[in-house]
Amino acid sequence: MEFRRKDLLGIAELEAEEIRLILDTAASLKEISTRPIKKVPTLRGKTVVTLFYEPSTRTRMSFEIAAKRLSADTLNLTVAASSAVKGETLEDTAHNLEAMAPDLLIIRHPASGAPHFLAKRLKCGVINAGDGLHEHPTQALLDLLTVREAKGRLDGLKVAIVGDIAHSRVARSNIHAFTKMGSKVTVAGPATMLPPYLDSLGVKVTYSLEEAVRGADVIMMLRLQLERMGQMYLSTLREYSVHFGLAARHLPLAKKDVIIMHPGPLNRGVEISPEVADGVHSVILAQVTNGVAVRMAMLYLLIGGEKA
């Protein structure tokens, strides 16, 4: 099987077969990062541009390292201001970038659909590195890879995703990703952070952290965006952490070999207690390592081969 898409915009449109191909490719490329000389010439002469309209260290660095390990030339563009005040429209930015003939554009943008907007207008490939509340596909792929490594399978696993589902592109991509691969997903959070119609995505919905983690193989805690405070979603951080913060006392409810995930950056003591974040069940740093592998795989699949 080969990957036939020009872009990676979301998990929603991927087939399980395509996801498997990406994970297998990532697994095989992972070894490169363990070599003394961590570089192969696969993407020599290719230009990869990262265009970030939101602050991000880890995702942008992860893409950059992935590109460099495959010998692509990288260019990083961080646009501080929001598109509304920066003067240049996204359309103009797109055409200007195109004029420089990059092979691949990696974009993060606060507006849902911004990568789709670019993909429609550009000949080069586009990777969505997070758009608004919509999707963050490479995060979901690295999460799948991490779980598959830990459990040896994805099918039939019980996965709990806990936190602000409404505002989380990580949650959306992961719900699509895990359900497509046969896992059973339960989401939990306060009702203000669980959007209506969640059940239409094929997940179980609960307001109880305890219920979500009972019997879970995987617990994924989402970052609570602190700016949500004062927007009528929550009363206090203290109360949030009491009801929806994962602590050591919750772990006996889950499977013995449960793994704890978090997309980072952590709010220690809010959605996750330090002893859980740093404990034996945590695979949080493995997620980061796998992020590089998955992004190498996507670069390779999108611009590595001789595509027609």
């Binding site: 659909g113 758009d131 608004g132």
Partner: peptide
């Protein structure tokens, strides 16, 4: 509209 489509597209409803 706030519904299944807004949920899927990550657009505020």
């Amino acid at each position: 509209h706030e519904g299944k489509v807004s949920l899927n597209l990550g657009l505020k409803g």
